[in-house]
């Protein structure tokens, strides 16, 4: 169950990121942390998942990547400072990735619902539950995706 689920989120991120930005992401690492994972996040978009499994999905990126992303979404308008618009672009990317992953999960029999994402800035995030951490890189820098499962019984 776990690898099937994690793979849908990885495929969703690489596909949506490429569609939105026209930039390819390369997965550089995938690690499982049974007791949770701590990470310092410049910007994190976080949403909850319910249904076939309960957990959270997080996208973690740095400021320059968030500014680049916003600029591309805004049809190339230069974006030099953090603003509500930047948070909105990161939140929307997270929403689209989780939406695409949910669509793929339903196709293989897992019906999930997602909440709308919130943004955390400059925080130490401690998932404190079994978590899969995937790392990616592209010409803009690095990006992390965390899939946290609420209960260890959901990991097989």
């Amino acid at each position: 169950m776990d690898s099937k689920i994690v793979n849908q989120f990885i495929k969703a991120l690489t596909s949506i990121f490429a569609q939105v930005t026209n930039v390819s992401l390369t997965k550089t690492d995938l690690e499982y942390f049974p007791d949770g994972h701590k990470v310092s996040a410049k910007i994190a978009a976080i949403l909850s998942i319910a249904g076939a499994f309960k957990g959270q999905f997080m996208l973690i990126l740095n400021e320059p990547m968030a500014l680049q992303l916003t600029s591309v979404v805004m049809a190339g308008v230069p974006v030099n400072n953090s603003s509500d618009l930047v948070d909105s672009a990161v939140r929307e990317l997270c929403n689209m990735v989780a939406g695409e992953a949910s669509k793929r999960l339903l196709e293989i029999g897992f019906n999930c619902d997602i909440t709308f994402p919130s943004i955390a800035r400059g925080k130490q995030i401690d998932t404190a539950s079994p978590s899969f951490v995937s790392k990616f890189e592209c010409e803009w820098g690095e990006l992390q995706q965390i899939l946290k499962f609420e209960h260890v019984s959901q990991i097989k």
């Binding site: 989780a98 939406g99 669509k103 019906n111």
Partner: peptide, 8 residues
């Protein structure tokens, strides 16, 4: 216009 493209 939504990211929630599941068939349901």
């Amino acid at each position: 216009c939504s990211a929630m493209g599941q068939s349901n």
